[in-house]
Simulated assay, not measured.
Amino acid sequence: MTAATATAPKGLESGAPRRGVLSKIVDRLGSGAVQVVMVVLGLFWLVPTLGLLVVSMRTTQVNNAEGWWTVFTKPAELTIQNYQNLLGSGFTASFWNTVLITVPTTVLVIGIAAMAGYAFAWMDFPGRDTAFLIVVGLLIVPIQIALIPVATLYGNAGIFGSIPGVVLFHVAFGLPFAIFLLRNFFVGIPASLLEAARMDGASEWKIFVSVVFPLGKPAIASLGIFQFLWVWNDMLIALVFADTANQPMTKYLQSQMRQFGSNVDILSSGAFLSLIVPLIMFFAFQRYFVQGMMAGSVK
């Protein structure tokens, strides 16, 4: 035995990787206990959402007099009158405005970014690397510096205050991150698959539609979730570029705020209705979410 071997730590002598404290705790507790802890943490995370639901189903007088947790002893206080009043107001129109803004924006960002990501990953053209560096540089450009110039441009073009104007702004500022994410995922696709398709006579469009796009579903679904949530919950762009007739839910709810939150019945019910669609969107594509989050992380 050499001197180096004799002085080596016991864990390194056997070649076994050193284990972290967290892995040791998991082994001690067992997988069942860890699952119980995760369930408890998940339920704890849902407490604010549960409180929001309860507040939205009680009158303003009751909410001002009691905490929402008293509903467990007084379930008769629950009512759907707040939702009936909300749906009978301008909230319904703002909901459809939000849909008309979010869905086209998400579709356009995914479609354009997927084609651009494929071009940056697998097509050779002059200035490709320079163009991709410009796209990466646009990631750090803050939205706020473009508000006034774009508002002036929209005013000259006659689309200020319209839904297409809001959609175009979201698409322009959503593309840099989308292209960066999808390009990093597409570049990890085995080149042999693309070469085999080219040998079979497939065009670049056919390769993109039949090979690259299906394999990119994890990253595309993850991007779709991110983009959908960003646009659905946006209020800054809506405040600047959407007029009253085309305002989304976020701007409508902001316009309903009164001093000291005296209309908590409207705000709570509107807030709860606004989060239902994003939850459906997330759970529909959650199996792709983790894979998409890891896209390009090992490159």
Rank of each mutant, 00 (worst) to 15 (best):
L41V: 13
V212S: 14
G111M: 13
F260E: 08
F260V: 05
Y252G: 08
M57E: 02
T92A: 13
S269N: 01
A245I: 09
L12Q: 15
E204H: 15
F120C: 05
S262M: 11
M38K: 12
L100F: 10
L50A: 14
I159K: 00
E204N: 15
F285Y: 14
Q247D: 04
L133G: 14
G20I: 05
K299W: 06
W230S: 11
V107A: 15
I237M: 07
G90C: 04
S255K: 07
P75G: 06
F91Q: 03
A146V: 03
G15N: 03
L273R: 02
L275D: 07
V36L: 15
A151E: 04
L175A: 02
A284M: 12
F169K: 07
F132M: 10
R258K: 08
L168S: 10
E195R: 07
F285P: 07
K24C: 06
L236I: 13
V40Q: 08
L46V: 10
V211C: 08
T106I: 01
W68D: 08
A119S: 09
R19L: 10
R19V: 11
W232N: 07
I112Q: 01
M199Y: 07
G174Y: 05
S203C: 05
G30C: 02
A284R: 11
S23T: 14
V62F: 11
M38P: 07
N82Y: 04
M281N: 02
Y252P: 12
W45C: 12
L100Y: 12
A131H: 04
D27F: 08
I143Y: 00
L239E: 09
A196K: 05
A6V: 10
D200F: 03
S274H: 09
Y118T: 05
S31E: 09
P214N: 01
G67E: 06
E195C: 02
L100E: 08
F95C: 05
N233P: 04
V211G: 06
T60E: 11
R18F: 08
V36G: 14
